[in-house]
Computed example of a mutant assay.
Amino acid sequence: MGWSLSTKEVFMVLSWAAFYTIHSVLASSKLKRFLEDKWGISKKTYRLFYSLISSITFLGIGIQILYLPPKLIFETIGISEKLGYFMATLGVILGIRSFKHISVGEFLGLNSTPSPRADLIQSGLYAWTRHPMYFALFLIFLGYLGVSGTMGALIHLVCLIIYLPVGIYFEEKKMANEFGDAYRLYQKNVPVFFPNPIKKGPKPF
């Protein structure tokens, strides 16, 4: 067992940093408007480009994970392993359900004609947390750490935790610009990340 990082593990950290940086830059509303005004790039084309770049960079990380030697930092026996499987499974389920109100084709930029602006989603998982997709990813990564107990799993989780405040900040800013007072009221009613039964939104499942 050891906590020092190998060269491959350091490269994994840098790869996650690059992935999250690219994700934040490409998700910027200012960049979208600049490219649309200066170069005439449509939202559909930009979304397709964004999805392609994200997929390629994430695939690169996936390949690194396959070749990253497992280094145990704690034994995965008993309750930690069971909790890990539970959290990872719950995260997958929540991740799938968080896409319930989202068009996958439009999300990836594949729709030929984007749908008109929809109402702010406040039902289902969005009545419990404003960012169910991020929360689902957190559970998956945390569960993976509990199951594997490896340095690689810890790196994935820590990099995600460091990125979450940044990703949430830009997402909140974009949503506030798009939905105005409706989203600001939603922010008051629903927790930003961890679900809170006491502070639950007005629209239940």
Score class of each variant (00 low, 15 high):
L108A: 10
S103H: 08
G105Q: 07
R47G: 10
Y169R: 11
Y183S: 01
Y20G: 03
N111C: 12
A136H: 01
S15Q: 07
P195Y: 02
P116H: 03
E9I: 10
F138A: 15
K199F: 09
T21R: 06
K71G: 01
F141S: 14
K174F: 03
S98L: 06
E171M: 03
G149R: 12
P69V: 04
L5F: 14
Q64S: 01
I168H: 01
F99T: 08
K174T: 12
A27V: 04
E81V: 11
F193C: 05
K188T: 13
W39L: 15
K173R: 12
G167A: 08
K38G: 01
M133N: 02
Y67W: 11
W128A: 04
K43A: 14
I41T: 09
Q122W: 02
V104W: 13
F170L: 13
L160F: 15
S148V: 12
F170H: 13
Y144S: 15
L14N: 03
I56M: 05
S55K: 03
L137G: 10
G2D: 11
I56Q: 00
K43I: 06
F107C: 10
F49M: 14
V92N: 00
V10I: 15
A176Q: 09
G60I: 01
N189D: 14
E172F: 05
T150E: 12
N196L: 08
S80H: 08
F194L: 14
P70N: 01
L142N: 09
K44S: 14
M87N: 07
L110F: 14
I77G: 08
L108C: 04
S29I: 07
R33D: 13
G180E: 09
L14W: 09
S148W: 07
E36A: 15
I102L: 14
H156I: 15
L164C: 03
I168S: 02
L142A: 15
L120N: 12
E172S: 08
I155H: 05
E171S: 06
K174P: 10
S103F: 09
F107S: 13
V10S: 09
F19E: 01
G109M: 09
W128K: 10
T57F: 12
A118Y: 00
E75F: 04
M12T: 13
F86A: 13
L59P: 00
S103K: 11
I56Y: 00
L120I: 07
A17G: 05
A118K: 13
L157Q: 14
S115G: 07
F99D: 01
Y144N: 15
F49Y: 12
S42A: 06
F34P: 02
R97S: 01
P197S: 01
K188I: 10
I96Y: 05
Y144T: 15
L154R: 13
K188P: 11
P70H: 02
